[in-house]
Nucleic acid binder design. Sequence first.
DNA 1: TCTCTTTTTTAACATTTGTAAAAAGATATG
DNA 2: CATATCTTTTTACAAATGTTAAAAAAGAGA
Lengths: 194, 194
Amino acid sequence: MSKQVSQVDLDQIVNKFRKLPQHSLIALKSHITEVKFPKGKILLHADKVERNLYFLKRGIVRAYADQANGPVTFWFGQEGDVLVSMKSYIVNEKGYENIELLEDCELYAIPTKKLKELYQVDIDLANWGRKVIEHEFLKTEQRLISMQFKTAQERYNELINTQPELFKRVQLGYIASYLGMSQVSLSRIRAEVK
Amino acid sequence: MSKQVSQVDLDQIVNKFRKLPQHSLIALKSHITEVKFPKGKILLHADKVERNLYFLKRGIVRAYADQANGPVTFWFGQEGDVLVSMKSYIVNEKGYENIELLEDCELYAIPTKKLKELYQVDIDLANWGRKVIEHEFLKTEQRLISMQFKTAQERYNELINTQPELFKRVQLGYIASYLGMSQVSLSRIRAEVK
DNA sequence: TCTCTTTTTTAACATTTGTAAAAAGATATG
DNA sequence: CATATCTTTTTACAAATGTTAAAAAAGAGA
């Protein structure tokens, strides 16, 4: 018996926040290719201007930035998420984010150049692109507020309640970093709860 | 002699990230009205679905969220910035953010409903709206990363180096909150530096 | 200018979180 | 299944930050 693997098809991903008319969907799809990479691959590099945007069909990834005290994991991407080096994508400069595959992944790829061309000629895609980033913005702002004034304990509770699956798929060192605390602190918190 | 007051005109604000064609600019302007409010006014309320978006011509504002341990200031808006309740604007639900005017302000107002209508019919405006939120996203993500793994001292240095004027216009209690530390900690850090 | 109010600083102490190093546990590979 | 490697937990101690309260300083209004 093969293990049931959850995966998300392209239409589902694309129509997540805003349904696209058929012709826009077809235009978008005409530039999309499907790719697979093994666990461990660095899909996007901080020191490069990245040329592709990806939709994650199957797998889980982390984005991390190299800070003075070592790498900081600041985002996890799961099935249905959009993977892109935001800095590259938005201002065409090399970014601060690396994206590493934490499992073998299946992805849909599209060159950002093509996507931007489509934005200039297809108003529905332009508004779709706006919706995608708007939702990312909201998630990020909420995390910022929570990071600003919640204790490590509260941030841990929040995450384990809203995304318990994350703890099964991602090692705790990365989760500690994502929560803005040392791995030792996370261990301590988990021990107390028991 | 009257004090020189810096203010930003509408064209400058609107063309900040992406220059709009003349007809789009005119369409946008046809729905914009100019308003003034005194220091202390709460321009946008957390418990309401807000109906307007503002461009700040003159003045400074803060966005704060009511958390369990009291209000948290998480954003400052200055001349040229876009003021909007993101939650209201993006998902049409009441938000978590209040916006308070910290000085007498002059603003350009546009109903978000009109703006969204324009997005559906004007591709240049749709892409302009995308650019605006993309830049806000980048700023927010960078702050999140900095909040995740920089010390209070480092965050203070960063802010005083990049935005020294802020310290002249905004009281330290709000800045401490924005930096994710108590006002006592901020005072301590400032005393050590001298 | 004098008083009242608000903001900022200082002090003392408590608590949280980090660091380094070792131990324990889990996973992968020959 | 035995060893090597990687991950997580634990311990002891140090450093950073928070809390409360009071003092000092700055600002606002009569």
